[in-house]
């Protein structure tokens, strides 16, 4: 488990980090490192330069004047979970208890997990359900981008994610995270982050899908599903077209079923009005 040689740099500002990133097409950004370092050590990924953003700062989690939750890029998962256990967005506290293990949560960052978007990761599902946005920094400026769009479309230009923003509107909403854990590696094999939103619900899924995604097709039919006798069949129908992945322990077909059962249980635990 020895990575190939690379240069290590620790810039002191986002500007410097982007400059370093743009000057070397094989450079990568290092946040908590729990996805990147493993890939480098196994030599499944190579980098000519590793840009460690730990020295930039970006270690604060706070509530903005608008009431949004602001999470900077170097905030660890443990720090975020502890903060949210006190101030709201309890789904993030709940994910903090279920994601990875204490060692990973102590070093791994929330934003890093969103950027890596591992299929079996936990944080992306919650972030999607919460309408999280990413704070993007490029050499031409800064802007906010919905995380769902970031996942779906990606970003071609060199960029750095300075942090994430979770809207205030979901702070006190009913929310939760349910997870079926992979027996071997602790990753999610099927998980759902949910946030009640007015008369509907917002759902982010991880584990079962090839990459984390917002379950808009299920959200759109949620009340209808809740009203049917055979909810499972309706959920299966709503999951049509999504791409599932699997392994020997938990094949894709089984993960799909397991995700559907999680969604059914969520419908049973909540009552929603049929949309007009």
């Amino acid at each position: 488990m020895i990575p190939a040689s690379f240069d290590y740099v620790a810039p002191s500002s986002p500007r410097e980090a982007i400059r370093l990133l743009e000057s070397d097409k094989d450079a990568v950004l290092l946040a908590g490192g729990h996805s990147l370092l493993t890939a480098l050590k196994q030599r499944t990924k190579r980098a000519s330069r590793v840009i460690d953003i730990a020295q930039i700062g970006l270690g604060e989690v706070s509530i903005t004047v608008d009431g949004d939750l602001k999470i900077e890029a170097a905030v660890t998962q443990t720090a975020l979970a502890e903060y949210c256990a006190k101030v709201g967005w309890t789904i993030l506290a709940e994910v903090g208890e279920k994601a990875g293990d204490p060692m990973i949560r102590e070093r791994g960052t929330f934003v890093g997990a969103l950027c890596a978007a591992e299929p079996g990761g936990d944080w992306a599902a919650a972030a999607l359900a919460l309408d999280a946005q990413l704070h993007i920094y490029t050499s031409s400026g800064e802007y906010h981008l919905p995380y769902a769009e970031y996942l779906e479309d990606g970003l071609a230009e060199s960029h750095m994610v300075l942090g994430a923003l979770v809207p205030a509107q979901h702070r006190k909403a009913r929310q939760g995270y349910v997870k079926v854990k992979h027996a071997g590696i602790g990753w999610s094999v099927a998980s759902v982050g949910f946030v009640e939103c007015g008369e509907g619900i917002q759902l982010g899924a991880g584990g079962a899908l090839s990459k984390p995604a917002r379950l808009r097709s299920v959200e759109d039919q949620f009340a209808k599903i809740a009203a049917t006798d055979d909810r499972l069949a309706s959920i299966f129908s709503a999951l049509e077209g999504l791409e599932f992945h699997g392994d020997r322990y938990a094949p894709a077909v089984w993960r799909r079923k397991r995700l559907a059962i999680l969604l059914r249980d969520i419908t049973q635990a909540h009552s929603f009005k049929e949309p007009a």
Binding site: H182, A183, G184, I185, D247, R248, Y249
Partner: peptide, 16 residues
Amino acid sequence: DGMPQADGSTVLDTPL
């Protein structure tokens, strides 16, 4: 389950 994959390689993350 340590049965090699179709290409003959052995999975690294078998559940323990």
